[in-house]
């Protein structure tokens, strides 16, 4: 498998060096693999950190900056970072009002962030509240699994909770709005091809040329089922229908519709998919008030996309539209 790398063992470290070189407004702790806003800690503002395995860029390091995260911890590819990284980041961003941990619901991520929060309580005076995202409707039997996975909604939580912190809300209120976004958001993804973890060197799963996987996770986890490849309009239906069946999105506040590229799918196709999604939403009586299209939470070079819907209201609309200045998301500044 051809990749633009030097040595599989150095992929994460060298990519972080690239982030530091490209973005002087960020500061990278290469020992602990943490991306900080250069001006962290920002005094008298609730701080937000997140983190997870690498391979989902721009999530999370690309969302560090004013209006979003204060720091992001990078793990190995698809492997959670460790508690000491998260503890260092927590101490490094605290501006006196406490730190929100945004955690995607995967067994390793949850456990490592849990230990970091315990260490923060035991060894520092920093107040930590954690919010876990679990929006993937592809996981149906959440009682007998590790639960729904955290996917597209994580991007929206980081943006909206970041704006709430910027607006001067306290830690409990920032955590509340983060939980609200997670509770009102749902996602579903699909893959046309597998991804290849650099250290493994071969595709994570075998998907024949004429088949696609519906309900895929962002680490190549299996989806609901494998089906014959189909036109985009039918793929859109496979993604939108389970989301609409899981949550009511017909409220008067409308929705934010987010079509996300998985890493290997061109924007040309992502916009084509958005068009199909928008038609289905219109037919279902769902009013779109904001949209987001692009690769924001990826799975290395996997081709495919995910759809995320978030039920909006005036509060969320205002926070979504607030200025943000990060490498991966930037407006209003």
């Amino acid at each position: 498998m051809k990749k633009l790398i030097n040595d599989p063992a150095d992929v994460v470290a060298e990519s972080l060096q690239g982030i530091a070189a490209a973005h002087p407004e960020l500061r990278v702790d290469h020992t602990n693999k943490i991306v900080y806003r250069a001006d962290a800690p920002v005094q008298n503002k609730v701080a937000l950190i997140s983190g997870g395995g690498s391979g989902h860029e721009p999530l999370h390091g690309g969302f560090v900056g004013p209006g979003m995260l204060d720091a992001a911890c990078a793990g190995e590819v698809f492997t959670s970072p460790t508690p000491d990284q998260m503890l260092a980041a927590t101490q490094g961003v605290d501006g006196g009002l406490g730190v929100l941990h945004i955690v995607k619901n995967y067994t390793g991520d949850v456990m490592n962030f849990e230990m970091a929060a315990e260490l923060a309580a035991a060894e520092t005076g920093v107040e930590v509240v954690s919010v876990v995202t679990d929006d993937d409707v592809a996981v149906q039997d959440s009682l007998y699994t590790a639960g729904r996975r955290g996917v597209g909604v994580t991007v929206l939580v980081e943006k909206i909770a970041g704006a709430a912190a910027d607006a001067g809300r306290d830690l409990a209120a920032v955590a509340d709005v983060a939980r609200k976004v997670n509770a009102q958001g749902r996602s579903m993804g699909m893959a046309l091809t597998s991804c290849t973890v650099p250290a493994a060197g071969r595709p994570t799963f075998d998907l024949p040329d004429d088949e696609i996987e519906i309900g895929i996770g962002i680490h190549g986890e299996p989806g609901r089922r494998r089906v014959q490849a189909m036109p985009a309009r039918d793929v859109a239906r496979e993604l939108v229908e389970p989301i609409l069946a899981d949550h009511d999105f017909t409220g008067s506040g409308g929705v934010l519709a987010f079509v996300n590229g998985m890493g290997g799918t061109p924007l040309l196709e992502q916009y084509l998919m958005y068009n199909e999604v928008a038609k289905l939403l219109d037919a279902a009586g769902v009013r779109v008030v904001r949209s987001l299209v692009g690769p924001y939470i990826t799975s290395l070079e996997m081709a495919g996309c995910s759809v995320t819907l978030l039920a909006m209201d005036d509060e969320l609309l205002q926070l979504w539209d607030a200025p943000v200045r990060t490498p991966g998301m930037r407006w209003g500044v």
């Binding site: 190995e76 492997t79 460790t82 390793g108 456990m111 490592n112 230990m115």
Partner: peptide, 15 residues
Amino acid sequence: LISTVGGASGPLYGT
């Protein structure tokens, strides 16, 4: 183990 393993095994064996 907690600071070097990551994933779920680090916290579990570390604990």
